[in-house]
Write a protein that binds this DNA or RNA. Structure first.
Lengths: 229, 229
DNA sequence: AAATGTGAAGTTGTTCACAGCT
DNA sequence: AGCTGTGAACAACTTCACATTT
């Protein structure tokens, strides 16, 4: 069975799925794409230290992987190294951020402005990494006037109108579990193609939509299991 | 090479490692342990709906996995089902939370009380799921008086003393990248065995310490890659 | 009849080891 | 001499399919 179409929810649940085959894009293991982000961060650090060239061995050590894996990861996308020499730091960084789509600022919307959502709104890290939360929605925008948030928060009913005016592809769900599926449906109905789900719910979406889930409790439970002696 | 000792940083980087072999505990795939958490949540929902018995088929659908996988995951730990009938919801939930160590409230400490750290402190979700942040540390506890946090925040210099008095096994790192490694060293030196790392840095720890990393920017970058058409 | 538990087969992901370039 | 790129070997994980139990 030549999979690739199959795909739906990604994240904790199904970590080993492969990417939906897009027209001209090869089928890349999901983990490879994750590691690309790590390589990019290491490269940025090297660059800011004035280092211009790096071997797969050195870079892989910084990233915490084996050198063969780094090389294999990169060759999914082409050949970027020079034998005997290594990789050009700046060039490789450019190519990775191009692939990841972070060479330009990416707009994202946020739904659910409770503790976690509010923190995400205030989080400076995003813009630094190429993402901007361009709008936030909650079912009770009034109660939010009080907190001093950097962005205004709209009622969830404003979401469809907003997305019609401003096409955005990615959305963050930070609502309580019982509301998560409903919000996901709303996002998908309004053209969102990728969802970052912070709710503890497993959400169902059409195959062509991608969900990454981050569940804090699960991460702690996982630690808890391995920590016990 | 009979691995199992090998292990160190877990999380995005090395998702496919196996558990350190503990005395009487079998070697369980890491992903299985993640799924256990998901099963547990589904079971809790079933239980609160008054359902007493569930088949692997029904439970696996709720969890978003194949039924064979659910059964295989469970049999790493024993036989809990009744052929022809299925699993007892309450019993299975008890056994999983026992395994995960969440049948009793687990203490956790937090280092770094910026935007994200403050949100984690205020996050009610944790206690609900069996974890309690028993202490929070920052290198500038003064500036935090202003925010109304549910817990007091101590200077980072108080950390060793605290851990000597109150042994805690798990710690959350929510400091900026440049400080992450230093904080990790401090935690490890003071007996922390499992670290949940929210900083964007790759941190190095001894083999016997476990690190799970959650990196928001990486999750978004990953979505970004798959969303592009 | 229904549903588990599990060997065996299949699939995906990682590492080795070396040919081949610079 | 050094380091990349990669086929082949290996290891881990998933799924199938069915014997087994209630």
């Amino acid at each position: 069975m030549r999979r690739g179409r199959k795909l739906a929810k990604r994240g904790l649940q199904e970590v080993n799925q492969r990417a939906v085959k897009k027209e001209h894009r090869p089928e890349i293991p999901r983990k490879t794409v994750y590691r690309l982000s790590i390589y990019l961060r290491c490269l940025q650090r090297l660059k800011s230290n004035g280092i211009r060239t790096v071997s797969s061995d050195a870079l892989s050590k910084a990233a915490g992987v084996k050198s063969a894996q780094l090389r294999k990861d990169l060759t999914y996308f082409g050949q970027f190294g020079t034998r005997g020499l290594g990789y050009d730091v700046e060039l490789l960084a450019k190519m990775i951020s191009g692939l990841l789509g972070t060479s330009s600022l990416q707009p994202v919307i946020l739904v659910g402005v409770g503790n976690l959502g509010a923190a995400l709104l205030s989080y400076r890290g995003f813009e630094q990494e190429g993402f901007e939360i361009v709008a936030a929605f909650d079912n009770d925008p009034a109660k939010l006037k009080s907190r001093n948030l950097p962005k205004t928060v709209e009622g969830i009913d404003k979401l469809p109108g907003f997305l019609r005016a401003t096409p955005v592809k990615m959305g963050i769900i930070a609502v309580p579990a019982p509301a998560a599926q409903e919000v996901a449906n709303l996002l998908v109905a309004n053209g969102i193609a990728g969802i970052l789900n912070f709710s503890p719910a497993v959400i169902q979406v059409p195959d062509e939509v991608i969900v990454n889930s981050v569940n804090l409790a699960i991460e702690l439970e996982n630690l808890s299991y391995f920590v016990r002696s």
